[in-house]
Design a protein around this nucleic acid. Structure first.
Lengths: 401, 401
DNA sequence: GATCTTTTGTTTCGCCTCGAAACATAAGGC
DNA sequence: GCCTTATGTTTCGAGGCGAAACAAAAGATC
């Protein structure tokens, strides 16, 4: 089957063909786990070798693809030239969270070129001061980048609701920030000319599960991602793409009501999930100080501490009620736990999967699964960089000028 | 901006250009409220008049477009030839519900060419008998169709979870059917050669809100559709498209838990929305017999009957809890009430909007709205026909052969 | 070691589709 | 009757792809 155009209401012309196929070739190379040859690209896309080679050459000239070292394996026939995503293009991913600052540079091959992660308690911090600190971190990082590396864009992951188009952080209760325009603040974080897009931390972190490298799909195409920071954010990934809703308000799983007659939440509702499975709720119920780590909680549970065990059970129950609702509505039985929930995943799994099995309508046909990725810290920063690099993959032609 | 290809990993060639642009022209004509001329099409798509005219002529030859009567309005310049979606193509939409059987034929212009709707109590009915009855309805309908009308496909809306690909009805509690393969049954409903695809009633009914005619968008691009039959089904519409999830299990809003310590539901969970806002629950709580209509309930409430009022309040409360969760997760503040909930919408709205305002995180920024469409009966049948016609719009080229 | 085989990459040519621009057509305005 | 205006058509040229022949670089075979 041949390609079909997207729903942009604009006629396709010859140049559209070229643009499209350039993108297709680039994405094909990026999607592959190992390097491909021109001939492989032709086979994968259904083009002739002639066409594939023409397009590859154009991408090589623009630096979007690199030729690798010849594979010295003894094989019949003319040896193939391996193709790789261009190492010269990279993107900057930043993250501000209640507990850390991070800056990370990812190249088109998905490699971490450089990174800085700094633990910090930023609850209730002054936005200007925090952005200044982030700026310091970032300029240090950028100063050490290898020469010739070209930053194609960047993103900033924030633990809250974001209006991407307007560049406004609408609500970030963990940081204590709200209705914060970021354009001016960001201008001092990165050098001029580098566009920095805001993003919700959960949305961006979910990308690191959906994609293991720019353009290369991860193990799951459809899943619900839960990002347990102090609150509980979430993202829905359908068909490998994050569903962001008509504006940035999707994924607020933490404020799904699990007990209507429960205590009041700061959001105005009652009995929200966060009150039972949020970081503070879990620690408080376990009798731990609020600056304890999920690991401390896990240790107590393994030592059969009654309060900690009860706290975890309550958390699993609340997650079960909330996630069952989400699974029933969205129809995705796969849940990936990130953030502090990732560290507790193994302890939560039995009870949580049990609750889901009982409350999810489709459970008899497809058992809901709880997964936890073993990724590095500050997944949001990586996701922000992935998003920026995804922009290059979507339309490489306008980078070939 | 020019078009970009979708994510099908196959190279675009010259013929792809043609195919794409044919589809674009057809969809442009369909999307317009009034007839367009070749010149209008060119302007809307950014093509030259020459190209637009070439494509239009090809579509005219295939019957996918018709030329209309010249507009006798006195205007300067050469009079334009109005173009309309081809009246010769139509699709068959069927619906089986707990309370009715319906068959409807819709043409490419969105007009109802013929229809038959029959009230019937099909709860616990024998599938074979019911399909036979549907077959009778359908053959009567098809026999009366104008000569020359060409059916391009069909669909059957069912009140339950459906595996579209396998053609299996997995679960339809209102009908009392489950794990029912439909291929053999459907073969006797429609003439051979007409493909009939299954669909969930709520998903298909939602299309009638998303599209007011094939290819023409309705007033809302993003909304949550609630289909109150005996149970409560739902559909998420994002960007004008129904989100069906990785299989057909999306939209089971009726089994979102609104009171974890509530009574047991037949689904295995406890305190499901259906137990408070389902048709039976509302009628029972109001002291009405189960075969009463939502209109009867509405009348009682308007007469200030205490039981009925309490029933409605409980329903609104339960809907508020469940929908707030969905809105928080999916980020769409627009809810369209269909089925029996549509008749109660005006009575539910004040309390329901109040609950949502209190429980939805984004309410301060975007107030959640409750809408009810005033569509005809058996929206699922219309939606099934719309879906089939949408297939023609997506790829008109393979019908030009 | 010369030749055959196999696979990759390149070149040439023709076809398809679109855009540009001139042309034709059908009306109203003056 | 001629000019203006808008629509629709025709002609020509250019861009991009496929087909097929060709060139290149290796192993396989004798």
């Amino acid at each position: 089957m041949t390609q079909r155009l997207a729903d942009v209401p604009s006629g396709a012309r010859q140049s559209t063909l070229r643009t499209t196929n350039l993108g297709l070739v680039l994405r094909t190379v990026c999607a592959s786990a190992g390097p491909l040859s021109r001939s492989d690209v032709a086979a994968a896309t259904g083009m002739t070798r002639a066409t594939a080679a023409r397009l590859v050459d154009e991408l090589l000239a623009g630096g979007l693809l690199d030729e690798g070292e010849r594979d010295p394996l003894p094989r019949r026939g003319r040896p193939a030239t391996p193709l790789l995503p261009g190492a010269r293009f990279a993107a900057l991913g930043l993250q501000v969270d209640a507990g850390l600052l991070a800056a990370r540079v990812l190249d088109l091959r998905g490699r971490v070129v450089a990174e800085r992660v700094e633990q910090a308690d930023l609850r209730g911090s002054e936005p200007a001061a925090t952005f200044a600190r982030l700026g310091g971190l970032t300029s240090g990082l950028l100063a050490g980048l290898p020469a010739g590396l070209q930053l194609v864009g960047g993103g900033l992951a924030l633990p809250g609701v974001v209006d991407e188009r307007a560049g406004v952080l609408l609500r970030a209760p963990n940081l204590g920030w709200s209705d914060l325009p970021t354009a001016d603040l960001l201008r001092r974080v990165v050098p001029p000319g580098l566009a920095l897009d805001l993003g919700n931390e959960a949305d961006l972190a979910a990308r690191t599960v959906a994609q293991e490298a720019p353009g290369r799909a991860g193990p799951h195409r459809d899943f619900l991602y839960l990002s347990g920071q102090i609150g509980i954010g979430g993202a829905i990934v359908l068909d490998g793409r994050v569903v962001t809703g008509s504006s940035g308000w999707a994924g607020e799983v933490g404020h799904v009501c699990v007990r209507p007659d429960g205590p009041a939440c700061s959001c105005g509702s009652t009995g929200c999930l966060e009150l039972y499975a949020g970081r503070h709720a879990l620690l408080r119920a376990a009798g731990l100080p609020l600056d304890a780590s999920p690991g401390d909680l896990a240790r107590l549970v393994r030592d059969a501490d009654p309060a900690a065990t009860a706290a975890l059970e309550t958390g699993a129950w609340a997650l079960g009620v909330a996630l069952a609702g989400v699974v029933n509505v969205v129809g995705i039985p796969t849940v990936v736990l990130g953030g502090h929930l990732a560290e507790l995943a193994d302890l939560l799994r039995p009870a949580l999967e049990g609750h889901l099995a009982g409350r999810v309508l489709s459970a008899r046909w497809r058992r809901p699964r709880i997964l936890s990725p073993g990724g590095p810290l500050a997944a949001g920063a990586t996701g922000a960089a992935l998003r920026a690099l995804g922009g290059v993959l979507a339309d490489p032609a306008d980078r070939l000028g």
